[in-house]
Amino acid sequence: MKTFDYSRADSPEAAVQGGAVGNTRFIAGGTNLLDLMKLQIETPERIVDISRLDLNEVEEGEDGGLRIGAMVPNADLAANPLVTARYPVLSRALLAGASGQLRNKASTGGNFLQRTRCYYFYDTAVPCNKREPGSGCPAKDGFNRIHAILGTSDDCIASHPSDMAVAMRALDAVLVTLKPDGDRRRISIHDLYRLPGDTPQIETVLEAGELITHVELPPPPVGKQSYRKVRDRASYAFALVSVAAIVAVDDGRITNASLAFGGIGPMPWREDAVEKALIGQVPGDAAFNAAADILLADAKGFGSNDFKIPLARRTLIAVLRELTGDAA
């Protein structure tokens, strides 16, 4: 591990001041960052510890939504009665991630910013465009079982590892941030992430020193909710495919659908056209397959992840069957 300077911020304002300087990283739970620092994939010169900031509340908004402090641990958020009652998809996604110990440490804000688990990103002896821009991508013609099938580029095919963020995307979450100049801004989760293109090292629109302070959820959408994660073992593995889904059926037809996907893209994946294709349809495999066709129209496998294309289809159909079961 490379030596670094450490300071602890006692306010968000102090944190962003420190965070704006050179090669600085915020640390909250550290469940991802410390691993990356030990392997010298991340080599910050300064660490600003934000773990003791007073951002631990889950508050009910006036509109019936939620305002979640960025430091709320994943375990606490998953168990929060407001979350389990109104946003079960979020609770289930959180509990599908990592292990009990990690969920106790990992923060809500940090979870959005997990780095990919691409095998080659993790080995500093080999090239990786995300780790060392311009060095190359061994994953494309190497082993890519966990890699993306949508949104990839010539430079990077890494997938985003978060479960929580997939549910957040289905729930139209909004991130509230504080910038070093004191400005606050609200960033829709739909605008947070960037496709890799030829700059896979830049993963979000966050600016240097910009700190996530809260996450806001609009009132829960109408419909039944589910989070289905398919992985290589029953626990403690990243998603091969996951689906966060909220679907409403009224009078025999789908009236609302919100679908986000994990494991298949460089970011939690959501596509309006998939949902539009379902709305107004009679629930059934014909409609579900049509939605999957749209989702996977541009899907591209790289060898060992080819199976994700049929797996994503089958998982989507299973989830839609589950959520429309009584009505189908």
């Binding site: 073992r233 626990s235 403690y236």
Partner: peptide, 25 residues
């Protein structure tokens, strides 16, 4: 345990990606 066909490196040499059964398994 997967070996990369081009570099010869172990692709998954840690407990994150070399999957042994968890309690849930």
């Amino acid at each position: 345990g997967v070996i990369d066909p081009h570099s010869g490196q172990f692709v998954n040499p840690d407990f994150g990606e070399y999957h042994i059964p968890t309690h849930a398994d």
